Amino acid sequence: MARPFKQQRNPRNTSPAKPAAADPTAVPQRLHKLLALAGLGSRREMETLIASGRITINGKTAEVGASVVPTDVVRLDSRPLHLPFEPELPQVLLYHKPEGEIVSQDDPEKRASVFDKLPRIRNGKWIAIGRLDMNTSGLLIFTTSGELANRFMHPRYEVEREYAVRIFGELTDGEMAQLTYGIELDDGPANFDSIRPQGGEGANHWYEVILREGRNREVRRLFEAFQKPVSRLIRVRFGPVNLPPRLKRGQMLHLGVKEVTGLMEWAELAVPKGPARQLTPREKEKLGKVFTPKAKRSRFDAEAGLESRGPRRVTKTREEGIRQELEKQQPVRRSRSRHGAVEPEEAQRPARPPKQAAKPARKPANRRIRQAADIAPAKQPAGKRAKR
């Protein structure tokens, strides 16, 4: 059977495509809210994004406070966006953060980041709920819902954060009462909601503290006010989420549908009534199971010539140590040019292959020269006379 010819489009027909028919019953929704539900960031960040002029609605630059309907075409930097007018159940990921990692996506020093280990997702991005200092470990929550992240982090909700703190020294009853009452810090007064001693050995003592703020290094600064430096800080709870005992350092855990639905109800957010999103086989395998993410190669300065060594990450302190070792092994000798400028000698002369070490000369032995007199005369066989 002959294959039918493909219908060619008439090039003279320049009429634009017909737009989608508008639904008169569609209820407009705020643009920044839909962008937050799509996992692009929090509502406040989306308002800043709209104000930057990168968002367009039907080819026109969007304004802060604009509303859209399902038939509108919304683009981010000319890339079309699929907005969730019917919200889907977000993803929630728990991570037991170890020390030595920062909670930032853009770091000029190229240190190890928690975002380097996160699994990839489509049509969205991971949002870190709260932050932890580089030297702080413990519970860290990631989600694809900007609304859920805002419910955890906004100061007006006053979500509790619980930490296990080990300090050098021991607090008195008066100092614990003062920490509960309040202390004046550089950025304003601060206090713990509760503080309980948890024992200790020797000079180190453990305390359990609860507070409702997330200021930078707030727990450490409160203890340092009484000359009690913090040697270990672990976050064990954030709101209704506790750090699971089976979740060891550096491991992750995807929450199931039941747990995520419970978080949405706790946050007083609308739970999607439609069918749940179809999970891939790999997502079904990891759902509800603890797994260790694959460590990616560390990001270093290419001029230093440093390379990652397997899953071990090179921190800033170790990176500086390796640089110093390389500088000691390959010192840069400098010389002055004709104009008086100091220039490295390697830039003036081409590199030469390394010379082989010369072999040491042998010491001459004290030997006497052999003479003819030293040679014994040969013996003649018996029965024969010597010829004259």
Rank of each mutant, 00 (worst) to 15 (best):
I121F: 02
Q278T: 15
R79V: 11
S298G: 14
L222K: 01
V260I: 09
Q251Y: 10
D133F: 07
A17N: 13
V103F: 02
A357K: 15
T25R: 13
R333C: 09
G288D: 10
T261H: 08
L49K: 04
K117W: 10
S194K: 09
L148M: 12
P293A: 07
P98V: 00
R349C: 07
H32T: 05
G138A: 07
Q91I: 03
V165S: 02
V68Y: 04
A62E: 04
G41I: 06
A382D: 15
E343K: 13
E86A: 11
G182A: 04
S137D: 12
E327W: 06
L233F: 03
E268H: 08
P272Y: 07
E170G: 09
G274R: 11
V332W: 00
E162P: 01
S308N: 09
A21Y: 07
D133T: 00
A128S: 12
Q371V: 08
K294D: 12
P245C: 06
A190L: 02
E184F: 00
H205F: 05
R220F: 04
K228F: 01
R336W: 11
N10S: 08
V114D: 02
I121E: 06
Q329P: 04
V260T: 13
R131Q: 11
I102L: 11
V241W: 08
A203S: 13
K379Y: 08
I167V: 14
P350M: 10
G262N: 11
G310M: 06
S335T: 15
A22F: 06
A304Q: 09
F192D: 03
I369E: 15
A295S: 13
T172Q: 10
T136C: 08
R44V: 02
Q380H: 13
R232F: 05
R318N: 12
G174M: 08
P90K: 02
G340W: 02
S67M: 11
R232G: 07
K328E: 15
K60Y: 09
E303M: 11
T48S: 12
E160P: 01
A177M: 07
G288Y: 02
A267Y: 08
F192P: 02
G169R: 00
V209K: 02
A203D: 15
F223R: 00
V219Y: 03
R246D: 12
W126H: 03
V290N: 05
N13K: 14
F115H: 14
V27I: 09
D193P: 00
A304C: 06
N191F: 01
P377C: 01
K289W: 06
E45C: 05
R151V: 03
G305M: 03
G321T: 13
K60W: 08
K379E: 15
N216M: 07
E218K: 00
E63W: 04
A17S: 13
H205S: 07
K33W: 03
V92T: 04
P353C: 06
R362N: 14
A203Y: 08
E268D: 14
P84R: 04
G188L: 01
E160M: 05
K379N: 13
E213T: 01
A302R: 10
E224V: 00
R166M: 10
L148D: 10
Q356K: 14
V74K: 00
P28W: 06
H96F: 03
P311N: 13
F223I: 04
A270H: 12
R235G: 06
D72H: 03
E224H: 00
R385C: 08
R249V: 03
K273M: 12
V257C: 05
P11V: 07
P11G: 02
D116H: 10
